[in-house]
């Protein structure tokens, strides 16, 4: 995974670029005003420090003309700034277009569900997008408020249950973009990250084809016993594996679990060892996560692990 966070100074889409542009202009305007004000205060401090025993200074109570000037000038600056803001609003967040969105991203305590109504795949916490194409995203939540934020790609937007908020998502350069839930959403708010991988169209199509596949078929050995355990134990009450069972989206879809970079929405890398720790006791890794400790016997745990490792 990429080793850097998302800086808004390194935008990778026209939408994010428009925001950075506005921010930088505002920064310069503020810096100019700061220089003037700081200069005036500095001058006063240097020039008017009391010479002890001096007479009282002139008791000036105001100056109408000056006061009008320093009311009108800021007002004009505000109008300019508002013009720039309106422009940036248009560029950074164009009105949504009617029709089905490309992706529906749903916040859960504490992970992201990504569904593509058009291409028919389901992913969790990680998804790929084709470089240079603007995707329409609808945000939803199944519980509390969450907030979708991929700093280098787009503005943030709250995921409100049933509100259907909209955001555009595009990356002009291939790369791995870090995202995060930025609205406080409960105990494990810190571990509700997401990863957006932007790649050329062909690679993206290949990824989609993988995601559209049902789970790999296993016929014998530990893996097959693991698959049966997935059905028999309560796993299927919360998780789904396409082609095997489970309809609930209370927990992430596991159809392509082994293909993901991270576990627990960013808390640890998805290695066999970490997955073993997770199955042993999720609460040790992500305290407060809604998956309880099932106290699996080591043999059952390893059978499940053997099965999960086939879910590429």
């Amino acid at each position: 995974m990429s080793g850097s966070s998302g800086s808004i100074f390194d935008p990778a889409s026209p939408e994010a670029q428009a925001i950075t542009h506005l921010f930088v202009i505002t920064l310069w305007i503020c810096a100019a005003i700061f220089a003037v004000v700081a200069g005036l205060v500095g001058y006063c401090l240097a020039r008017y420090r009391q010479r002890e025993e001096a007479d009282d200074p002139a008791q000036t109570a105001g100056n109408k003309r000056l006061e009008v000037v320093w009311t009108v000038v800021p007002f004009c600056i505000v109008l300019v700034l508002f013009g720039l803001t309106a422009q940036a609003m248009e560029k950074s967040d164009p009105a949504p277009e009617p029709g089905e969105p490309d992706l529906v991203i749903t916040g859960h305590q504490w992970w992201w569900e990504i569904r593509s109504p058009k291409l028919g795949y389901v992913a969790a916490n990680e998804f790929h997008i084709p470089v240079g194409e603007r995707l329409s995203i609808r945000l939803d939540s199944t519980d509390v408020l969450h907030e979708f934020w991929v700093p280098r790609l787009t503005r943030k937007m709250t995921a409100v249950p049933h509100a259907g908020n909209h955001v555009w998502l595009r990356a002009d350069k291939p790369g791995v973009y870090q995202g995060v839930c930025s609205e406080f959403c409960g105990t494990q708010h810190a571990w509700m990250r997401l990863i957006v991988v932007a790649e050329p169209r062909e690679k993206f199509d290949a990824w989609v084809r993988t995601q559209q596949q049902p789970a790999a078929v296993v016929t014998s050995g530990d893996a097959a016993r693991g698959r049966d355990l997935f059905r028999e134990l309560t796993c299927v009450n919360c998780h789904a594996i396409q082609g095997v069972g489970g309809k609930s989206n209370a927990g992430p879809d596991l159809t392509h679990l082994a293909g993901r970079q991270m576990l627990g929405a960013g808390v640890v890398p998805n290695t066999p060892e970490n997955l073993r720790r997770w199955l042993t006791d999720p609460q040790q890794i992500k305290p407060g996560a809604l998956m309880p400790n099932f106290n699996l016997s080591p043999s059952r745990r390893d059978q499940l692990l053997a099965y999960f490792s086939t879910l590429q």
Binding site: V37, C44, Y48, Q50, P74
Partner: peptide, 23 residues
């Protein structure tokens, strides 16, 4: 943004108070 105007006015008037005073 409009709130910046009265706030700025206050700051300028405070500087006006310092100006020419015996600090």
């Amino acid at each position: 943004m409009a709130i910046a105007v009265p706030t700025g006015v206050k700051i300028f008037n405070w500087i006006g108070t310092l100006w020419g005073g015996h600090l």
